[in-house]
Design a protein around this nucleic acid. Structure first.
Lengths: 248, 248
DNA sequence: GCAAAAGTGTTGTCTCTACACCCATGT
DNA sequence: ACATGGGTGTAGAGACAACACTTTTGC
């Protein structure tokens, strides 16, 4: 099988909004986009993009997104959610974007449809280089602009994540396998942008029978060590009830 | 502007799951797919597809979906929601699908990425012919199979609609502008597949201040005429509170 | 006057919110 | 001993589920 001849599709890509949590804030993985003027040697582009890639012509969309994740992390079982597709003919049409595309041997007049995914990472095992470009974490709150329409994609991924977090237990995906209740609470607070009452939060999660208290405590912390918990997906899937309560 | 030369994109399409409600059941608009053997004249394909179309090379995805809706209904302000994209290389690969594509002058080996939309219709003002094919309503519950991967798309559209209905007031979109509370209740019951208690339902909707009671009643019904209500989107948008209550 | 759907209240249980203090550990 | 976050209970308010009868119209 001649893998090296596999063709990338020109006009179909995936973009991955990779969220990571460091117990303090929500971060997103971004890639440097730097370009120099060939004659003067001056930087003419220096900004950031989401991670993403074109899709192989014989590759499923989810596969393409997983592949991007794998290239960046070496991990295969990462939480990944398709949330929206973007295909505006003008989505990559600003001057810098056109120059960048041309520089990379692509036709800037060709519309690219991109399928947006977001993923949640418990760790920060991430390569620091990717396709020859620098990759690093940036706090979501600090990001004000991105290349192409990636700011819009990021914002909509975040909305989508918030909605998801309100209705399904995905917060665990942003934490290591064993975590404390305070860490879990912080995930909710940071993602939802809202302070929560500690006692009420614990009362609420104590009703989640898929949240397993372990016989294990934090170690080496300069305060009362917290009990560790883990998330049991099987129990969740088996006992989740259909919430039948529409909103006011 | 040479509109007639505008090119459709070969490999990018939209599919629209058009839901309609007739006060009794949920229906979906489907198109006949019929094909005869050129030599024997025998029907070799006779099934149904969702409505959909390829996207023009310079057309946004939402526009393409709106265009399909407009072609079918002549209406422009239809509730339309993008819910998922599909791009499996094998999604249009069964024998019938390949024969149909070939017959229609397309390359059956080419993967088509399709962007799935669903829409909600208050009326059934629908053309009965579309691109030379018959179009009609089918009860969602009766549909067991469809061409291509359209059964999967339909099922996922329905899931998506149910989730939406639980969290946002979209039920109104399936009703005429003026409707009774019993009609609204039936929308919830049919879409969610669950009977609801009349008194509890009315208590619940009475808390929705964007549901406006009109000084008007049903006419010509052989029972006590019901009061009519309408939905005020402005009030909803202005007063919707951020639900901050994650599930157990 | 009959059939058919409209409309209406109460009670017990559960969940939400708001709020303050002692506990176990590392330094 | 002190700083730090861990861990716990209560009371009032609002929402949920279950449940049965009277009203108004067309025929």
């Amino acid at each position: 099988m001649a893998e090296e001849t596999r063709a990338l599709h020109d006009e179909i890509s995936v973009d991955c909004v990779i969220f990571g949590f460091d117990f303090e804030k929500l971060n997103v993985l971004l890639v440097d986009r730097v370009m120099f003027d060939v004659s003067t040697g001056k930087k003419i582009i220096d900004d950031l993009t989401l991670t993403g890639n074109h899709v192989y012509v014989d590759e499923d969309l989810d596969e393409a997104a997983s592949r991007v994740l794998f290239d960046l992390t070496g991990l295969t079982d990462i939480y990944l959610e398709q949330f929206k597709s973007y295909g505006s003919p003008s989505r990559i049409n600003c001057e810098k974007d056109r120059a960048w595309l041309e520089f990379n041997g692509r036709d800037p007049d060709k519309r690219i449809v991109t399928i947006g995914y977001y993923s949640l990472l418990a760790t920060d095992k991430i390569t620091l280089e990717w396709k020859g470009r620098n990759v690093s974490w940036y706090p979501v709150d600090d990001i004000k602009e991105l290349a192409f329409d990636h700011m819009q994609i990021l914002n909509e991924a975040l909305d989508s994540l918030r909605t998801k977090l309100l209705h399904e237990p995905v917060g665990f995906e942003l934490l290591p396998e064993k975590f404390t209740l305070s860490q879990l609470q912080r995930v909710y607070e940071i993602v939802l942008g809202k302070e929560l009452d500690k006692r009420n939060f614990r009362k609420k999660v104590s009703r989640m029978n898929y949240l397993i208290p372990l016989d294990e405590k934090q170690k080496g912390v300069p305060h009362k060590p917290a009990r560790l918990y883990s998330f049991n997906r099987d129990i969740y899937e088996a006992t989740k009830e259909d919430v039948m309560d529409f909103v006011v």
